[in-house]
């Protein structure tokens, strides 16, 4: 479904990714891991087109989207939840969802309800400004916002980082449920135990390069992996 080949990305002169290869087959849940600053967020941004690729290609459903506009990638079926539970702070929860929904011209009528079913707590907060939600609620809103664009693949950047434990459980359950419905997911997750519970494939980045990749079962009790993740 998603295929990244030989991707190079830089911020000005500072090169961050050096020829990254990554594949996410349809229906898979790939966990992208690695220490802070190795380039996980940068990789997701380049897949979404928020950052330009210096070299390499990004294929989605076999289509080359390396040069496509960000919004065109969203319409093609890529959903993205950026790191740090981002919202439109001055818009209400309902408006946050509407903005994303209205930009998906052929959206099914039930999408909004399905997203809210996943996080029922949001239903009681629809009129609240997003900036006034707790971090955990903002993260739930952020995921729901991505879902109403009806993605066929979802990129999640550390969705549980700095979130209160009760909501981490809800988010984990939501990811599991989305995966069960056949959604392809690329998840950045620092917490190895959570990754092991959810993922079927893994990719480990170090200093802007893929150093390990494979089936999730290979991750158990692998000392080398624990060293790469510094856990």
């Amino acid at each position: 479904m998603l295929e990244v080949k030989d991707l190079h990305v830089a911020y000005g002169r500072a090169r961050v990714l050096f020829g990254v290869d990554l594949q996410a087959p349809p229906g898979s849940l790939v966990c992208l891991m690695g220490r802070n600053g190795v380039g996980k967020t940068t990789l997701l941004k380049a897949v979404m087109g928020v950052l330009p690729a210096r070299q390499g290609t990004v294929l989605f459903d076999g289509r080359d989207i390396t040069r496509a506009h960000v919004h065109a990638r969203v319409r093609a079926g890529l959903g993205y939840v950026p790191q740090g539970h981002e919202t439109f702070p001055q818009l209400t929860v309902a408006e946050n969802l509407q903005v994303a929904r209205e930009s998906t011209p052929k959206a099914r009528p039930g999408t909004l309800d399905e997203a809210l079913d996943l996080f029922p707590a949001l239903r009681g907060l629809l009129k609240r400004r997003a900036g006034f939600l707790s971090g955990g609620q903002q993260q739930q809103l952020a995921i729901a916002r991505a879902l109403v664009t009806e993605p066929r693949m979802l990129l999640l950047d550390e969705p549980t980082e700095g979130i209160q434990p009760s909501i981490v459980q809800e988010i984990e359950a939501a990811i599991r449920q989305l995966h069960a419905t056949g959604l392809t997911i690329l998840l950045v997750e620092q917490y190895l135990e959570l990754a092991l519970r959810l993922a079927d494939h893994f990719v480990i980045l170090d200093a802007g390069e893929v150093v390990r990749a494979g089936a999730a079962t290979e991750l158990h009790n692998d000392e080398g992996v624990r060293r790469l993740l510094a856990v």
Binding site: M48, V50, P82, E86, F88, V99
Partner: peptide, 9 residues
């Protein structure tokens, strides 16, 4: 950036 990744042109 969030607007763009929400599909807004």
């Amino acid at each position: 950036q969030l607007a763009a990744v929400s599909g807004v042109a």
